[in-house]
Structures are given as structure tokens and as C-alpha cells.
């Protein structure tokens, strides 16, 4: 059986309603070397354990949110909205998100 994912807006829904957008990544700071940039783009931790990741409620309220899920059991520990700063760009607990402006 696939699993339920609690949307912060809509509550627990079938995971097939959502689009998975990958684990959270950390954008390199300053002026990254090509190698650092390639590493940021392509390489993933692919954790076997609790992973912090992006989801999008594609067939629902179209909300982007973060989840913590154990990839060994698919148990979802929590879901939450990314925190935003005054400018409205997300600054979640882990520093980087796909939307963080380029430095």
C-alpha cells in the first residue's frame, strides 16, 4: 500500500495526489567552483532514514511544503510550511531551498 501524506492545508491525503520534488539541498555560497556547482546540481544524499524533502499538492490545493519522512518505512514524521522572511522568499531551517536566490 502506498502511504498518506498530511498536507498542511488539506490534512492526510493519498501520496498519489502529490508531486515529489526531492530532498532539500544546500546551495553553495559565494562563488562556487564548477565542481561544487555540479555537485549541488546532481549529487544527492539519498538517505536511508529520515529525509527532509519538498512536496507539492498537485491535485489539491497546489501548496508547496516540506516533509520529514523515514525512507525505510515511508512513515511521515511531520509536514510544515517553509518559513518565509520579509521579502517572501523561503528561508527554511536548513539554509537552502530550490528557490533561494543565486548569490
Amino acid at each position: 500500500m502506498s502511504f498518506l501524506l498530511p498536507c498542511p492545508n488539506c490534512g492526510p491525503r493519498d501520496v498519489d495526489e502529490f508531486a515529489y520534488a526531492g530532498e532539500t539541498t544546500e546551495r553553495p555560497q559565494g562563488t562556487p567552483s564548477p565542481r561544487e556547482l555540479a555537485s549541488y546540481i546532481h549529487f544527492r544524499r539519498n538517505a536511508a532514514g529520515v529525509q527532509r524533502e519538498w512536496w507539492y499538492h498537485r491535485f489539491g490545493c497546489e501548496l508547496w511544503f516540506l516533509a520529514e519522512r523515514d525512507t525505510r518505512t515511508n512513515e511521515v514524521l511531520k509536514t510544515e510550511l517553509p518559513s518565509t522572511d520579509a521579502a517572501g522568499s523561503p528561508t527554511p531551517h536548513e539554509p537552502a531551498t530550490p528557490d533561494t536566490p543565486a548569490v
Binding site: 502506498s2 508531486a19 526531492g22 524533502e53 525512507t71
Partner: peptide, 14 residues
Amino acid sequence: IEPYTTYRGTSTFP
């Protein structure tokens, strides 16, 4: 493949 990453090898009904 299922779109999300997972190490859990359980079949799904969908």
C-alpha cells in the same frame, strides 16, 4: 518507478 525516493520494498495498490 514511483516518483518519490524510498527504500521500502512494499507493493502499492495504485
